[in-house]
Amino acid sequence: MASTSTLSRDEQVKALQKKEARRRRIPLLPALLFTIVVTQTPFAFSLYFGFLKWRGNTPAPREWIGFKNYTDAFQNMFFREAAWVSILMTVSAVLLSVILGTLIALLLDRKFFGQGFVRTLIITPFLVMPVVAGLVWKNQMFSATFGVINWVINIFGFESREWVSEFPLWTIVVVLVWQWTPFMMLIMLAGLQGQSSSVLEAAKVDGASASATFFQITLPHLRPYLELGVLLGSIYLIQVYDHIFTITGGGPGSTNIPFFVNQRSFGAAFAYGSASAYSILVVIAAILIANFGLRVLSGLLEGEEA
């Protein structure tokens, strides 16, 4: 082996390390390929379709039209409206469920008889299928004639209302908040229980009032948990479809982008090209909204020092 002996010792070691690294990585390759195929192919296809003019209900061939689908999207009044609904729906549902979830978590974070039972009760809405949740709320709660809400407000002398048709967007938000509050509560509860009790005692000894302790110590401690809740909530809630489908069927002012995408493609219009482009926009929007949410949150909590 005259040739190897000309290499310096360092080079030999490096070559060995490289070989070793390759030897270790090769068995991982199939898993990597599988992951790429499964997760990235659909995305790559929608990306590609988004650049096509492709209508499923005409025999016209697909045609590469570049960014036209995207530019059209922003000129499409219905898309703009759906985008606005998406933002309103996501932001309000995430914020409300985070706030409510935090409040309930604060209540559950103290010891009382039947704590575990109450916690389980509170989690149940999250376990209900979205379609079922939508139907239950639509028929049992919001219904103008049989609804519980109307029954309750009638007792207090208010007139019955057509909740779903009067407030299509906000009835959906109510159901989303109902379903997602337990999730946020779980995250916040984990955060609260991770807080050292002696830190709270130290605050007490330092003379902090309950509200000062909450805003100056507990809330900053909860920050990563709030961020996680906002992030996961935004990603999931921007994709909401089932609730809209069951409650309003996309009625006035309650069509968000995913619902709109479906209408444009399988729903009726068979505009696969532009629908793909819209779905890409949803992904971008999800990233933007989540980012924005995190920024706002960080800004709020960064604030006071010293």
């Binding site: 050292s196 002696s198 830190v199 005692e201 130290a202 605050a203 100056q216 110590i217 900053p220 401690h221 920050r223 020092e305 010293a306």
Partner: peptide, 11 residues
Amino acid sequence: FQNYALYPQMS
């Protein structure tokens, strides 16, 4: 305190 109980988010 034994574990000092410093406020972790504060300087």
